[in-house]
């Protein structure tokens, strides 16, 4: 997980590898710090995200609840379908949704 600030002052988060119940403890503290930041637009780059389970989705939703609006880029097809089936494609501003 890499975090950067975009040119428009928005938050840019790049997630890679697996985001599931097993890897959640690794990013939890980082995420809790993030969630104390001031609300601002969020750009999620999921180009390197291989796997996403419901626990990972819960994390993404908490991010999306804090930082709006959300744009999601480069999501792989499996990840896009997970978010789509959950009825969250609009919510995450999936490109092409």
């Amino acid at each position: 997980m890499t975090i950067a600030t975009g040119p428009d002052g928005g938050l840019c988060i790049r997630l890679g590898g697996d985001l599931d119940i097993a890897s959640l403890p690794d990013v939890e503290s980082e995420l809790n710090r993030l969630l104390t930041r001031k609300p601002r637009p969020l750009l999620l780059d999921l180009a390197d995200l291989d796997f996403l389970d419901s626990s990972g989705v819960a994390l993404l939703i908490r991010l999306a609840n804090r930082f709006t609006p959300v744009q999601t880029r480069h999501a792989t097809e499996p990840v896009r379908r997970v978010l789509g089936v959950l009825g969250l494609a609009d919510r995450f501003g999936l490109d092409g949704a």
Partner: peptide, 27 residues
């Protein structure tokens, strides 16, 4: 609410029903 739609099987044909999902409970 964010859940997979059910499958209807009739006379050896299986069809995934179409029910557009709303966001999950909790969102």
């Amino acid at each position: 609410a964010g859940h997979l739609c059910p499958l209807l099987v009739t006379e050896g044909r299986a069809e995934l029903l179409d029910c557009p999902p709303a966001p999950p409970v909790g969102v």
